[in-house]
Design a protein around this nucleic acid. Structure first.
Lengths: 222, 222
DNA sequence: GATCGAAGAATCGTTGAACAATTCGACAAT
DNA sequence: ATTGTCGAATTGTTCAACGATTCTTCGATC
């Protein structure tokens, strides 16, 4: 007999609710650039397009709004989030906090290996000249860094931050030599991490984030 | 005519929507311990109690779920979040990341003054022997530290973390000499901050958070 | 011709009712 | 003690409606 309630690991075989699937679909369209910042999302239209009720769309909107992917304007509707002044700095402030903190704490061998895997993934993508894959690999790299901390909450925060950045920067950074610079930095950061030089890894990562922020600030209107 | 769209500072005089007010009311009850972890929140009951529609309650639930104050179990209902194994460590991991990062970045004179104000608030509460006020002051102190970074996103993350901790620890820590230790530490941290010794302030804060986590771990089951 | 305002259309916020699907509790059968 | 079944309760979702708010259009006015 199984112990009455093993407590935590209650694996729910739950089919994602309709509202969640709607949110997922919209998230996808947002990441893919099919819905550009500022675009209006009319409840009735989306409800009809996806074949669901307006109320369900509403619930999906609530979820996306909590992730800052869309903004609700009372009595006016929801719009794809737009980059306000200070948002770039804000996003990088969050990243500096959680990424640097995570890497300074080190992590299990498995988690470190995952970081290494992301670095390699980036190298392969570069070799294959696949810019999309390069961008994904970079996100995986930074996701893996946060994952070092083994914190559910930090993971979801990072997921949201990355989703927001995809929304804003999806095509803007298809500049080739952007990425080549990343690759070397990621390699160095990963090497320091593997060598247990956590302090130095943190400094390298911090430097990368600061430089990356400046790049984004110059690319987008200050 | 007003300038076509002054852009950001569009001050909405919006009356909070009904759904938001419901969420607010529930948040209040959660913080105040009227709704204990594990309690079931039946849609119909709450809808009737608050005199709103079931759909509206649903929207409020979605918001609270995104803040981890309640948990949705598909087809079963929403329950007040309970402390799972590792949650305490998780919460403190987030706090270490954002609080230490914020204090290491320093802040404007106004923001530093706000930290000082929170320290004083704590001292007054201690003098008045008001334990509730002491708890609030401590939360203000740590909120003020995060506010140093002037980041909307970090502020809301911190707000959510503190709300979650209030939910779990609302009465547990009414131990008098807990607080007196805090007061001295807060004072020392604030002094270091004011002196511009950011690195040291960060270390002190980190030490405090580590010790606080251990206390909570021993008080609550492991 | 530009400004203002008012009528009308579109959309949102919220409600209430409905119904299938799922879970829960109890009770009977093996 | 396990299994199965039935009924009650609750959730997930849809639909239709209506007041409130915003947007648009279109004249009327200066």
């Amino acid at each position: 007999m199984a112990p009455p309630q093993t407590g935590s690991a209650r694996v729910r075989i739950a089919v994602p609710s309709v509202a969640e699937r709607v949110a997922e679909e919209l998230r996808y369209q947002l990441a893919e650039g099919m819905l550009l910042p500022g675009a209006r999302l009319t409840e009735a239209t989306i409800a009809e397009d996806l074949g669901v009720s307006r109320n369900t769309v509403r619930e999906a909107f609530a979820e996306l709004a909590s992730e800052r992917l869309v903004v609700r304007q009372p009595n006016r509707g929801v719009f794809v989030a737009t980059l306000e002044a200070g948002d770039i700095h804000d996003l990088y402030t969050v990243r500096r906090a959680i990424e640097v903190s995570s890497i300074r704490g080190g992590g299990s061998a498995e988690r470190v290996a995952a970081v290494r895997a992301a670095v390699d993934e980036g190298k392969r993508a570069a070799a294959a000249d696949d810019n999309d894959a390069l961008g994904s690999a970079n996100q995986h790299f930074h996701g893996a860094i946060v994952a070092l901390a083994e914190s559910k909450r930090l993971d979801t925060i990072m997921r949201h931050v990355l989703a927001e950045m995809r929304l804003y920067f999806h095509k803007a950074t298809s500049d080739a030599h952007f990425y080549s610079a990343w690759l070397e930095e990621n390699e160095a950061i990963c090497a320091a991490l593997e060598a247990g030089e956590l302090e130095r890894a943190g400094e390298l990562l911090l430097g990368y984030l600061n430089r990356s922020e400046e790049q984004q600030l110059t690319v987008h209107g200050e």
